[in-house]
Write a protein that binds this DNA or RNA. Structure first.
Lengths: 138, 138
DNA sequence: AGCATATAGTTTGATAGTCAAAGTAATTGT
DNA sequence: ACAATTACTTTGACTATCAAACTATATGCT
């Protein structure tokens, strides 16, 4: 098999395994993937408009409105008016939402520590470099 | 920021970007993520029982039954009896399903080529090594 | 052998996620 | 000033999903 094909399938396998892990973690806590993903985006980026959030999540604003309603009811997210554009609404994490974000991010960190435990310093450095380069190419 | 945290967030970003890419590719062809994922698993692994496939996909067999019904109707998958266990059913790709699998896999390959274009030979080698090691640790 | 238990798959009923399209309100551009 | 655009919400239809009940087969125990 060509190197590039092997790399391709390793990437797909890595993606699948991450996906299964996330799925299991999320279901165990009785959240949905969509909900946690929303929390993750807001937690890492900060408050943003509905439209921007919908674009980042890859869903329509119609779908997002419903999702945000639920997360607002659950106390994780708050809506507030946009300062300069009265059509827009900013959504942001509440304290409770931020707590949930940190909790979830810690799980990710623990996973990252586990799966990179067998990499030496150089390998870890190059891996970081490769990921940065690849993330820039999307 | 600690190295491990940076690595963690780069992995999450990579995962998110792959996820968006897959989502866009799949919707463009009017399939669902679930359907293509099923095709991918069968394509890379070969025929398997419903239970095993459901486990790999992270869904219940009830959900899978419905999915497979649709894919059988669409001509991508065929059911056949298990040789030694009459409770079991083997699902496998048809020729049309294999064609779809290769087509999708080629898209993945093209993406992999794109995002690794800026990596030199050594970086690519170490990336492959890291992915293999990480995939083994899940 | 015979029966209880476990396993594989399907069906059903309920719920959540999704989109497209229509509707409301505010902004922008000419 | 007003037409076109943009941001968000609502609505209706559809799909994915699970849990639980159900059928058929296999396995294990006495």
């Amino acid at each position: 098999m060509k190197d590039i094909e092997q790399l391709n399938h390793s990437i797909i396998e890595f993606y699948d395994k991450l996906s299964s892990w996330e799925h299991a973690v999320v279901r165990e806590k009785n959240f949905s993937l969509a909900q946690i993903h929303t929390i993750e985006v807001l937690g890492s980026h900060g408050a943003m408009r509905m439209k921007e959030l919908a674009d980042r999540l890859g869903i329509t604003t119609g779908t997002l409105t419903v999702q945000i309603d639920k997360l607002v009811n659950a106390g994780f997210i708050a809506r507030r008016p946009h300062e300069s554009d009265r059509r827009s609404i900013l959504v942001d994490l509440t304290d409770s939402g931020r707590h949930l974000y940190r909790e979830h991010d810690d799980l990710h960190l623990a996973l990252t520590q586990d799966i990179t435990a067998n990499l030496n310093k150089d390998e870890r450095r190059i891996l970081q470099l490769c990921l940065s380069k690849m993330n820039n190419e999307f």
